[in-house]
Structure formats: structure tokens, C-alpha cells
């Protein structure tokens, strides 16, 4: 554990809670892509199956349980509790174009050809692109609420901080995981355009427009 890893995790946690609270307080999920949230629920489920097979640390277990719980709570709010406010017409990204190639890639390129490892790899690849339906939705409507941009900023910052964590771990522990690193770079790059807009526009205008 280093400072980049910890702040990355906290940034991720902040993003998840910001989104959950935003939907809960406003009693609306307008402008939020339910498809991205389903993808994140799949990401956490397939990655954290090791909760059932191995114990790493109390911190590790707690965070995994919180992430999974919040992901499903978010999906529940969007598709059940506040379904009437869900903007399905604008959430039109074809997720099969992500899930199918990612599934194929995780079978082809993985550390070990075993069910748990392939599912872990699938979750890493899927996470890197899971935000695309949300970004697509924002580009389609041309605007996002300020709080949604804070959510996206924290979510993007988390993987960027993990990149520094991986650099740290490579230098000080000689550890690297090429699958996580390449997917993490892809994931961070997808947010670059958004980061730029967030910094130059997001802090000063409301509502946020692309």
C-alpha cells in the first residue's frame, strides 16, 4: 500500500458514493447511463469472486464488499426505484460491442487459463471501457449536471492514481502486471478529453456543456 494506491481507492469510493447520493437526494437518475452502471456491477462481480476463495486483508475485503454493494444499489435505483426518471432514449450505446470483444480478449490474453483468472481479466478489460456508455450519453445530450462531472472526475482520477501506484510498485517492489497496466492506461486515456473540459469549463459553468 502506497499513497497513490490509497488515494486512488478513496477517489474510487468517493465517485461511487457521489453518484449514489446524487441519485438518492435528487430522487432522479436523469443524465446517468444505466448501461455503464450495469457494466460496473458486472466488473465488480467478476473481479471480486476471490472474496469466496481467499482472504487478503480486512481493508481489501471491506472495500470489495462496499464496491459491490454500492454498484448493485445504484443499478437498483436506476432500473427500479427511480426508473421513471431514467433517460433510456439517450442511453443508446450498444454494450454488446464492448462485452463481446472484451470477453474474447480475456480468453485469449490472460495470466492463467482458469475460470477465476479469465473472469478477473474480463473485469479488468471491461472496466477500462465501461464508462463509454456514460460518455456517449453526455456527448449525445451535450450536457451534464455539475455533480455528474464530479463523479466522472473522481472515477477517472482513480485509475490515473493507480498508474502512479503501478510505477511506484515497479520501482520499489519490482512488481508489475501488464494486463492491469495496459488496461489502466486505456481507461485513463478515455477520460483525458473529459479531464480537459472539467478543468477548463466544469468548475465555472453550470450546467456543464460540452
Amino acid at each position: 500500500m502506497n499513497v497513490f494506491r490509497l488515494t486512488g481507492d478513496l477517489s474510487h469510493l468517493a465517485a461511487i458514493i457521489i453518484l449514489l447520493l446524487k441519485i438518492w437526494k435528487s430522487r432522479s437518475c436523469a443524465g446517468i447511463s444505466g448501461k455503464s452502471q450495469i457494466l460496473f456491477a458486472i466488473v465488480f462481480t467478476t473481479r471480486y469472486l476471490d472474496l469466496l476463495t481467499s482472504f487478503i486483508s480486512l481493508y481489501n475485503t471491506c472495500m470489495k464488499v462496499i464496491y459491490i454493494g454500492c454498484a448493485y444499489a445504484t443499478v437498483y435505483l436506476i432500473y427500479a426505484k427511480f426508473r421513471a426518471t431514467y433517460d433510456g432514449n439517450h442511453d443508446s450505446f450498444r454494450v454488446e460491442f464492448l462485452v463481446v470483444p472484451v470477453g474474447g480478449l480475456s480468453v485469449l490474453i490472460n495470466h492463467d487459463f482458469s475460470p477465476l483468472e479469465i473472469l478477473w481479466t474480463f473485469s479488468i478489460y471491461l472496466e477500462s471501457v465501461a464508462i463509454l456508455p456514460q460518455l456517449f450519453m453526455i456527448s449525445k445530450t451535450g450536457e451534464a449536471e455539475t455533480i455528474t462531472t464530479h463523479y466522472l472526475f473522481c472515477l477517472g482520477l482513480y485509475r490515473a492514481l493507480y498508474l502512479f501506484n503501478w510505477i511506484w510498485r515497479f520501482y520499489f517492489e519490482g512488481f508489475f502486471d501488464m494486463i492491469a497496466i495496459v488496461a489502466g492506461v486505456v481507461q485513463t486515456v478515455l477520460y483525458c478529453d473529459f479531464f480537459y473540459l472539467y478543468v477548463t469549463k466544469g468548475w465555472f459553468s453550470r450546467p456543464y456543456r460540452l
Binding site: R5, D50, I56, H111, D112, D177
Partner: peptide
């Protein structure tokens, strides 16, 4: 091996 993921990360 060193390049194997250790599953400690989230």
C-alpha cells in the same frame, strides 16, 4: 511470478 497479479489491488 512477479508479473502475476496479486489480487491485493481493487
Amino acid at each position: 511470478s512477479d508479473s502475476q497479479n496479486d489480487k491485493d489491488e481493487l
